[in-house]
Amino acid sequence: MTQRAEHSTVMDRLAIDDLITGYAHAVDDGDWDAYRELFTKDGRADYRSAGGIEGGCEEIAGWLSETMRHFPVRQHLIVNRRIALATRDGAPGDTATVRADYLNPMRLADPAGATPADHGAMAPNYTCGGRYAFTVHRTPEGWRLAEVVVHEKWRQVVPNGKV
Score class of each variant (00 low, 15 high):
residue 74 R to S: 13
residue 84 A to M: 09
residue 64 L to I: 00
residue 72 P to A: 03
residue 83 I to Q: 06
residue 40 T to D: 03
residue 47 Y to F: 14
residue 94 D to A: 12
residue 70 H to E: 11
residue 46 D to I: 08
residue 36 R to S: 14
residue 59 E to T: 13
residue 79 V to N: 15
residue 78 I to S: 00
residue 44 R to G: 02
residue 74 R to E: 02
residue 64 L to T: 02
residue 52 G to A: 10
residue 84 A to S: 12
residue 49 S to M: 11
residue 84 A to L: 09
residue 89 D to A: 12
residue 57 C to R: 15
residue 53 I to M: 12
residue 52 G to P: 04
residue 94 D to M: 02
residue 66 E to F: 07
residue 67 T to M: 09
residue 54 E to Q: 14
residue 75 Q to G: 10
residue 89 D to P: 02
residue 74 R to W: 05
residue 58 E to S: 11
residue 66 E to G: 15
residue 56 G to I: 10
residue 55 G to H: 06
residue 79 V to S: 14
residue 58 E to K: 10
residue 64 L to K: 01
residue 43 G to S: 04
residue 53 I to C: 02
residue 39 F to I: 01
residue 66 E to C: 12
residue 78 I to C: 03
residue 37 E to W: 01
residue 47 Y to S: 08
residue 55 G to N: 07
residue 79 V to L: 13
residue 60 I to N: 03
residue 93 G to E: 07
residue 40 T to C: 12
residue 78 I to M: 06
residue 55 G to D: 02
residue 90 G to Q: 11
residue 63 W to A: 01
residue 40 T to F: 03
residue 47 Y to N: 01
residue 73 V to I: 11
residue 41 K to G: 06
residue 72 P to G: 00
residue 71 F to W: 12
residue 65 S to A: 09
residue 51 G to N: 04
residue 83 I to E: 11
residue 46 D to L: 11
residue 86 A to S: 15
residue 36 R to G: 09
residue 77 L to G: 06
residue 74 R to H: 05
residue 68 M to G: 02
residue 67 T to V: 10
residue 62 G to W: 06
residue 67 T to Q: 08
residue 85 L to A: 08
residue 82 R to P: 00
residue 48 R to E: 05
residue 62 G to R: 10
residue 42 D to E: 13
residue 88 R to P: 01
residue 90 G to L: 04
residue 75 Q to A: 14
residue 66 E to S: 15
residue 87 T to R: 13
residue 87 T to F: 08
residue 87 T to G: 15
residue 66 E to T: 14
residue 42 D to W: 07
residue 81 R to Q: 10
residue 68 M to A: 03
residue 56 G to K: 12
residue 88 R to F: 08
residue 42 D to Y: 06
residue 48 R to G: 03
residue 73 V to E: 00
residue 57 C to Q: 14
residue 83 I to C: 04
residue 83 I to V: 13
residue 80 N to P: 03
residue 54 E to T: 12
residue 57 C to D: 10
residue 88 R to L: 12
residue 46 D to K: 09
residue 88 R to C: 05
residue 69 R to C: 09
residue 79 V to W: 05
residue 57 C to K: 11
residue 53 I to W: 02
